[in-house]
């Protein structure tokens, strides 16, 4: 691993057992997270993005899940560690921010105690030092009266405040990696903006690497440095954020962009992707996985074993079908191109 690389995932397969067969929800993902960067993982529901997150942090049911491949962090392979060894890393070096802040908090514990838990487990601070740290953390996440909030219960706080508390818990031990799984999906837009700004500011302070999992391309555009797009368990495109938004290549990425009801365009019709996301058991395990959704593109355009190709520095695209791809014009007015492919 190079010095600026925090986390390196090599050919990760995470499968779930359904009737004694394992079906891989994450199917051969390789990724690198560098220091001080926000890496966004985007995709629609069922593409495996959350499974990827839980594989990294080891939050899966050992009996029903099979994780193969390497997750290299701090000279260790996280995929091969025991539960006890993972407990020493979770919360201390890698922490997680969950989607629904209410269900991630214990309803019977005061906010202060919940933030303190990680500190008790991972540090040998005295009780007074921990209390001081709790207040400091609450202040850091922008809570105005930390003394009062520390004594309150989760139900007494608003959604935005709860998510701030979750973030305070996540950063309590100054982790090197924070995994944020849809951190703002349950929140209103104004609160979402505040939480995203907070994440950016905290990252600038702590220099942690953040893996941001989301389905919202607007959120990605606002905060990410690098983006990986997932479809059916694979990464199909990866690029720096500016490159991806100005020059998307893979048919799936381009289709997604054209499905967004744009704030600035007056176009009548949105692009629709044909067919549906295949379910885990029906995933095509060979060939280009997106080919079923773009049947008007000839078979020869796809690779037999689609690989990620680096088409410009840092910009990877899977399969070769993007070279031949064009939008199928719809009967009612046709789709419009948001980003002309040059």
């Amino acid at each position: 691993m190079k010095t600026d690389e925090l986390l390196k995932i090599n050919d990760l397969h995470t499968g779930f057992r359904i009737k004694d067969t394992f079906y891989d929800a994450v199917d051969g993902v390789s990724l690198t997270l560098r220091k001080n960067e926000i890496l966004a993982i985007v995709g629609e529901s069922g593409c495996g993005k959350s499974t990827l997150a839980t594989s990294i942090i080891g939050l899966y049911d050992q009996n029903k899940t099979r994780v193969q491949g390497e997750i290299l962090f701090d000279q260790k392979n996280l995929a091969a560690l025991s539960e006890e060894e993972m407990n020493g890393i979770r919360g201390l070096q890698i922490s997680m921010i969950f989607q629904d802040p209410l269900s991630a908090l214990n309803p019977l514990m005061r906010i202060g105690e919940q933030i303190e838990e990680g500190l008790i487990y991972h540090t040998d601070l005295t009780s007074e030092a921990r209390q001081a740290r709790v207040l400091e953390l609450l202040k850091q996440v922008g809570i105005k009266n930390p003394e009062r909030v520390a004594r309150q219960f989760p139900h007494q706080l608003s959604g935005g405040m709860r998510q701030r508390v979750i973030i305070a818990i996540a950063i309590s031990c100054k982790p090197q990696i924070i995994i944020a799984d849809e951190p703002t999906t349950a929140l209103d837009v104004t609160i979402q903006a505040q939480i995203l700004d907070l994440l950016i500011d905290l990252q600038a302070e702590t220099e942690a690497g953040i893996i941001l999992i989301t389905h919202d391309l607007g959120v990605v555009a606002e905060v990410a440095d690098r983006v990986a797009v997932m479809y059916a368990g694979e990464i199909i495109e990866e690029a720096p954020v500016n490159e991806l938004f100005t020059n998307p290549k893979h048919p799936y990425t381009r289709s997604l962009f054209n499905s967004i009801p744009q704030m600035n365009s007056e176009s009548e019709r949105l692009n629709v992707i044909e067919g549906i996301v295949p379910s885990l058991m029906n995933l095509p395990r060979s060939g280009c996985r997106f080919s079923q959704r773009i049947p008007w593109i000839p078979k020869e355009a796809h690779e037999e074993h689609p690989a990620l190709h680096e088409i410009s520095p840092g910009h990877f695209v899977r399969c070769t079908c993007w070279k031949e791809f064009h939008f199928k014009t719809d009967k009612g007015g046709g789709t419009y191109e948001l980003h002309a492919n040059k």
Binding site: V189, A193, D216, L217, E222, V241, F245, Q262
Partner: peptide, 13 residues
């Protein structure tokens, strides 16, 4: 409310 909506472009963020 309008200022809080994320725009789908990283330019000018």
């Amino acid at each position: 409310l309008l200022s809080a909506i994320p725009e789908v472009t990283p330019v000018g963020r």
